[in-house]
Simulated scan of single mutants.
Amino acid sequence: METNMAKKKINHRKRARRVWPRLVQIAQLKEFDTYGENAGSIGLHHRSAAWYLGVLQAECSRRGYPPLQALVVNKTLGKPGKGYTETSTTGPAYDKAVRQVWRYDWPKTAPF
């Protein structure tokens, strides 16, 4: 039996655009966001974040931007999850990526 939910296509690009301003603000404050806070800011469960953060990762990489999604971390571990592939999730490479994100002059709205 097929339901209406099964027919509805989820627009992860739209979700990525919705969280962009929040992440830009967090970058400007030189802070981090948790998956729960990030997803919750657009009314979603934290497990949804992997999909739209993957869109952000691809768009940042394609445009030569630092990995903005690096600022979204697991609340307990304080680091990104398995979907973050830009650098390792700990150590000097990750720390450097975060510093680049914090210093970057981000557009206020998503450029995609």
Rank of each mutant, 00 (worst) to 15 (best):
M1R: 12
M1Q: 05
E2L: 08
N4K: 00
M5Q: 11
M5K: 10
R17M: 11
W20F: 04
P21Q: 04
R22L: 13
L23R: 06
Q25R: 15
I26S: 11
L29I: 00
K30W: 00
K30H: 14
K30A: 07
F32T: 10
F32K: 08
Y35E: 08
Y35K: 12
G36E: 12
N38R: 00
A39F: 07
G40L: 00
S41L: 05
I42V: 14
L44I: 07
H45T: 06
H45D: 14
A49F: 00
A49L: 02
W51R: 15
V55Y: 07
L56S: 11
Q57A: 15
Q57M: 13
E59A: 12
C60I: 09
S61F: 00
L68V: 14
A70R: 01
L71I: 15
T76V: 14
T76P: 01
T76K: 09
L77Y: 04
G78S: 07
G78R: 03
T89W: 01
T90K: 08
A93P: 00
K96A: 11
V98G: 01
V98D: 02
R99T: 10
Q100Y: 01
W102R: 13
W102S: 09
R103I: 00
R103Q: 14
K108W: 00
T109K: 07
A110V: 04
P111I: 06
F112A: 02
